[in-house]
Amino acid sequence: MSDMSQNASNLREGMMASMSKQQIGRVLAKQGILIAFAVFMIAFAIASPKFLSVDNVFSVVRSSAIIGVMALGVTFVVISGNLDLSVGSMMSFSTIVVLDLHDKLGPALAIPAMFAMTLCLGAFIGFLVGYLRLNSLIVTLGMLSAIHGLTLTYSGGQNMDIADKEGTWFSVFGQGTALGIPVPILIFLILAALLGMVLAKTPFGRKVYAVGGNGTAATFSGIPRARTVFYCYLISATCVATAGLIQASRSLGSQNTVGQGLELEVLAAVILGGASLLGGSGTVFKTVIGVLILGFIQNGLLLMGLQFYVQFVVTWIIIILAVWLDIAAKRGKLWSPIA
């Protein structure tokens, strides 16, 4: 009996010791991205007084809105333990389709038709990855190419333009303002709040974390793994369609390659927000921070008179530092144990 209580007290002590160490690590890992964000903002604000002006903040958020909206959807996919590299070419598709249908069906019909078509693509990917359990990296890589081909076929390789650019209310999504706030920002923030709640508060969100954290354990708890992943890709496609809508409405005309390469920027924002590519961690809020960091870095460096490409290099360093510190905090060691 004394042995058992001895055991019990050992247990408590051991647990406390390991918890406090872990907790410090986790707090660092959790807040690291916010700290980095704050440091950046302060540094830029000192360097350039214009940086924190309302106009500038609006312009940064507005230009980040397209990447941001897509990043919201990709957050779901990444937390569920998968990747989506097809969002860029899918966005080109949405943009081209809605611009084309605008003149053929009118905007009121064009928008739902475009959403339906984009969702079909998302459903196809979701089926392949969720139900057939194919590797998401390769599937979405293939879809990147296939959707690009589909877009070119659809447009016949031509740029797409709206005939009457002045007379359409369609421009409201990209160019309008409501309550003094640009509409793209409103869309981004409302969607972020909505999806943030879905992920953090609803049973579905809980399932996404469970499936990404440990798919086998989720299955052993009766959670429909395939369906959960499938829905994540539907959400991603919905976000992509929304981004395509904003893009089309902003420019009212577009090339076939408008979204090319965006998938990697989107993924960078999500990773910067701290979502692990292994799945099971990340939040919508942190993704928004990730998007804003990318946006403000770009803007801040420009305001400081640096060329746009400096932003690329800075982003590279930040992504690696962010992920590195995150896993370093989790393993309790800065350097990897790889021999």
Partner: peptide, 11 residues
């Protein structure tokens, strides 16, 4: 760093 090659080379 032990960061996954996918992320490192994406960066």
């Amino acid at each position: 760093t032990g960061v996954d090659a996918f992320i490192v080379t994406l960066g």
